[in-house]
Amino acid sequence: MKTTRSTAPAPTTQDEYTVDVFTVVNGAPVQWRIDTRTTLLEALRDSSGLTGTKRGCDQGACGACTVHVDGARVLSCLMLAAQADGRQVTTVEGLVGEEGQLHPMQEAFVRHDAFQCGFCTPGQLMSAVCLLREGRAGSDAEIREYMSGNLCRCGAYDNIVAAVREAAGGGA
């Protein structure tokens, strides 16, 4: 996918506390003209209306805001939107197929009741999808360790492990 790279900020067009960011979100090019303070989380939610990514602490300690940047899972609350310039961002909205079909991990989460209130779920899903890519679903203990950056106050951990295990091909 072609990406554009800006040299931010652009002082001639806006005041010096504004930055232009060009990025690709869920496969589509996006441009944000935003306050330099804006985090990637805020830009996704407030500028692009992608509210699936959640703010649970805004301090990098709960994982609810997990998204993929260039294929790696990161905390969008601890990343300036400007730092995503020229990068590929994927959010939970990007997991759904082009015809609206659920991602196998999303299906597994529903089947295993791997959530309750659903608030941490987008972050859990984004972590879980990466976890498989990282090759870290070899055992339940491994899944638990590498999913521990995503808090679930409803306590759905056992079901999340079951969903990840199934999506990893280990059966239900």
Binding site: R73, L75, L78, R136, G149
Partner: peptide, 9 residues
């Protein structure tokens, strides 16, 4: 030392 998300950043 940190979660995967933090280690990636």
């Amino acid at each position: 030392g940190a979660t995967v998300q933090l280690r990636n950043m």
